[in-house]
Design a protein around this nucleic acid. Structure first.
Length: 493
RNA sequence: GAGCCACUAGCUCAGUAGGUAGAGCAUCUGACUUUUAAUCAGGUGGUCGAAGGUUCAAAUCCUUCGUGGCUCACCA
């Protein structure tokens, strides 16, 4: 015998080829999923089942455990959504099949079996196998059966192994898929139109972030991976699609952390004739609906904190938040930039000299409050300086009709009533360009076509973006964004 | 980008007054026809993340590098 596992398994693969004629057969038909056998027989006992006619099922999956005795043995078979124990005995199957079972099988192999359900002495529903076929040899051994794969890097790099071994990881990605489906149902029920807008942008816009740059060869043109779909979706509002949403990836060329992956998924949606307060109500309804429909509950544990979606979400303005977290604030910080800068720096916020007042206040707020925003809370009424695409408040032109939703200590949604005054928008872009020149490399760029679109008239509109990855983190109690992204970005091996 | 920590068999992990590497599971051989982390007996398997250095001697001490984790910074 060869002296390592890979070589040993290659030899078994050769033997299989000699025994059945091909090494990788594809002639086994599956007629049943394990979960439907479990469902159909869940109320049967050893006694009730013995009196019934034996019904043959054909199932397939991966061998996870085995316990082999002399002329018989048990296997645990796993398919896409269930595990079932198999009982294989020499006298019940053809001789060639028993050779496959006894001599050629390894844990991790993909097999197909036929057999009839029965209940063992110890009361476990099992399949009494009458045909046994190895369909795909696994040449690499699976991780240790009891502990599974725990090394975090391996779980990300070899997600396929993680998904085989770790049922909680598997369940989390299934939940993610259901969450996205429920979001679609939610928007579809409100007559939203799902659209797809460009991922390659000639101008990176719609958010403040550094983009990935790429190049189109034939047009010899610089392009940017999109940092947000916002400006395209609002062009569609101009075009008369009054309710649109898009679920897709954004790309931001920034740091990686437990809450940031360079490519992440957002649902961004826009509704004409709505305001940001309408969206607060809608967001609450959305979170409750998705949580209830996917998980059947409204109260979640997130990393040791309880998050209750059944209660109305709190609402707190940025300025009130500063007053609440820093009761000793100097009265002048909301009007005097020098006082605000000095105070924010004293509190430990990172303030650059070119920051306008609104940005200083925003940094201050996030520095002191963000970590404590565990229960769902809408932070409202942002400074104009940090909101170049938002509508000004009627009552105070230094603030905008905007909110961000915080849950579990991080930002999960951002929304506002949209600025639909093309002349104001043009001035705001000009101001952003000034900030860019002053040193803010994440300031917005001028998008002349977007201004051109607004000049045709965009109805009063509100829009919102929700980070799907973070939403899934909350609902599945995931400590890191990498736990909810199948293949998170890692350095090259 | 900074600090701290980790990297030993396919997997999960032991192993520091520095003396040349171990266990469990997996795998191999044998026994066993109702087991379920099966059991019993006996084997195989390692350039101790990489490269330098100190030393008679390095998994162990030092330096640099790599990969990863956590925290901070960045992320309006």
């Amino acid at each position: 015998m060869a002296d390592n596992i890979f070589e040993q398994r290659l030899e078994k693969l050769e033997s299989l080829g000699e025994l059945i004629g091909v090494k990788y057969p594809n002639n086994f038909s599956v007629d049943t999923a394990i979960i439907s056998i479990l469902e159909e027989y869940k109320n049967e006992t050893r006694e009730t089942l013995e009196t019934k006619e034996k019904k043959i099922f054909s199932i397939a999956g991966r061998v996870m455990f085995r316990r082999i005795m002399g002329k018989a043995g048990f296997l645990n078979l796993r398919d896409r959504d269930g595990d079932l124990q198999l009982y294989v005995s020499k006298k019940s199957i053809p001789e060639d099949d028993f050779i496959q079972f006894k001599k050629l099988l390894d844990i991790g192999d993909i097999i197909g079996v036929k057999g009839y359900p029965f209940v063992t002495k110890t009361g476990e529903l099992s399949l009494h196998v009458t045909e046994f076929k190895i369909l795909t040899k696994s040449l690499s051994p699976l991780p240790e059966k009891f502990h599974g794969l725990t090394d975090i890097e391996s779980r990300y790099r070899q997600r396929y192994v993680d998904l085989i071994m770790n049922q909680d990881s598997r369940a989390r990605f299934i939940a993610r898929s259901k969450i996205v489906k429920e979001l679609r149902n939610f928007f579809d029920a409100k007559n939203y139109l799902e659209v797809e807008t460009p991922m390659l942008h000639p101008i990176a816009g719609g958010a403040a972030a550094r983009p990935f740059v790429t190049h189109h060869n034939t047009l010899d043109m610089e392009l940017y991976m999109r940092i947000a779909p916002e400006l395209y979706l609002k062009r569609l509002i101009v075009g008369g699609f009054e309710r649109v949403y898009e679920i897709n990836r954004n790309f931001r060329n920034e740091g990686i952390s437990t809450r940031h992956n360079p490519e992440f998924t957002m649902v961004e949606f826009y509704q004409a004739y709505a305001t940001y307060t309408d969206l607060m109500d809608m967001t609450e309804e959305m979170f409750k609906t998705v949580a209830q429909n996917v998980f059947g509950k409204l109260i979640f544990d997130y990393q040791g904190n309880t998050i209750d979606f059944s209660k109305p979400f709190k609402r707190l303005s940025v300025y009130d938040g500063i007053k609440q977290y820093l009761p000793n604030y100097p009265k002048e910080i909301f009007s005097d930039i020098e006082v605000a800068r000095k105070f924010a720096k004293e509190q430990g916020a990172k303030i650059e000299d070119y920051f306008p007042l609104g940005k200083v206040l925003m940094e201050l707020f996030e520095h002191v409050a963000e970590k404590d925003l565990i229960e769902p809370v809408f932070i409202t009424d942002f400074p104009l300086d940090v909101s170049p695409l938002s509508r000004k408040k009627d009552a105070d032109n230094t603030l905008v009709d905007r909110f961000e939703l915080y849950i579990g200590g991080f930002e999960i949604a951002n929304a506002f009533s949209e600025l639909n005054d093309p002349l104001d928008q043009e001035q705001r872009f000009m101001k952003q360009i000034e900030e860019k020149e002053a040193g803010d490399d994440e300031a917005h760029n001028m998008d002349a076509d977007y201004i051109r679109a607004l000049k045709y008239g965009m109805p009063p509109t509100a829009g919102e973006g929700i980070g799907i990855d973070r939403f899934v983190m909350l609902l599945t109690d995931a400590p890191s964004i990498r736990d909810v992204i199948l293949f998170p970005l890692l350095k090259k091996e």
